[in-house]
Amino acid sequence: MDFNFDAHQQFPLADRSFLNIVRRDIGKIAEAVGFTEAEVGRVSLVVTEMSTNLLKHVGSPGGELLVKPICQENGSVCGIELLCLDNGPGMSDPQRMMEDGVSTFGSMGQGLGAIKRQSDFFDIYSQRSTGTVILSRIYKKGKAPKVAARNEQGFEIGSIMVPKPGEKVSGDGWSLRLSYKGAYLIVLDGLGHGENAHAAAQSAVQSFQQQPKVAPSDMLRGVHAAIKKTRGAVGAIAHWNAETRSLAFCGIGNISGRLIGASQAKNLLSYNGTLGMNVPNTINDQQQTWERGQMIILHSDGLKSRWDLSKYPELTRHDATLIAAVLYKDNTRTLDDTLVVVVRATE
């Protein structure tokens, strides 16, 4: 199973003059993580098709590409994830648009089909008036995960993490620890942004990884004690267990959490306070059911809190990272680091 804790690198596409620069820089990322010449060529082709489609159908100021290496549990890089986000007119039938020769703009209509063919994993979400998000993952030879391996823990997880424009690192952070038939997840937002916020979030992640696997509220107290020499962070921990069909959640500060079920959505409330500075004397876990198909979505305040999944028909059927990307595209504040983590129960 792949777990990706790094931030996405953002490549805005204001106009066609940026295309060669973006293609070159993303190609360098692929080379740096050990892709072969042929694999770099696949990445460059996907970037070219994504960028061309984006500029053709959206126009100025264009949209953006998000890119990050895909890492395995041992930290080794096994692939690259590419996302194309636009707020253009969208498509009413994106599956038909992937057929070669089909186009609503009079072009040859080969872009989406080419992206899918070059990708080891491909997903797309588009609807009229809300734009399009395309997800492509390209793996090194022999490194693509098997479907059975992705689902063996009983959940699917995806994320979008983008630093504040102008910053090289994100002050947000997240991490995952597997447990029997489930996992512990921490989502963090270091106070402010930049290097000091990043250091606070990473210190909290390191403490989380060392905590005993106990109740989320107890783990948060351990993190609180460990990061008192940093500027502090807000954070939340969720623990889900597919065997007992249960979810436990505890948060300190303004990390937003929402549990999405088949018929309703429920907000997960956090306590006032700041990890590393001040937390309430008494904190307890919220207990919820955790059934197949349910999702928990956690995000920092870089994302507006009033998002509504009902605006996106059939979105919950898509890949967890693509869901996070759609929410990011339409709801990021752009004035802070943004982190969105989506977890879906698969059994």
Rank of each mutant, 00 (worst) to 15 (best):
E167V: 02
G142A: 06
L269K: 14
L259P: 12
I283L: 09
V47N: 01
H57I: 03
V133G: 01
D123C: 01
F11H: 03
C71A: 15
Y184P: 08
G232W: 11
K146R: 13
N74L: 07
A248P: 02
E243H: 15
I160T: 06
I115V: 09
A320R: 08
E347A: 15
Q202P: 02
S256L: 00
Q287F: 05
G158D: 04
M219E: 12
Y139R: 06
N4M: 02
L220M: 04
A225F: 13
E167W: 02
D2G: 10
G251W: 00
V43C: 04
H8L: 14
A225G: 15
V133H: 00
I186K: 05
V169E: 14
M98V: 03
M91W: 14
G101H: 00
N278K: 11
L54I: 07
G75F: 12
E347H: 13
M108C: 13
N4S: 07
L112I: 10
E243C: 12
F3I: 14
D120F: 01
G182P: 08
E73Q: 15
Y180C: 13
S51I: 04
A345C: 08
P216F: 04
V58P: 03
L13R: 02
A38N: 12
N196H: 09
L85A: 05
W307F: 14
E156W: 03
S179K: 10
F155H: 11
A30D: 04
T338L: 07
G192V: 02
D319W: 06
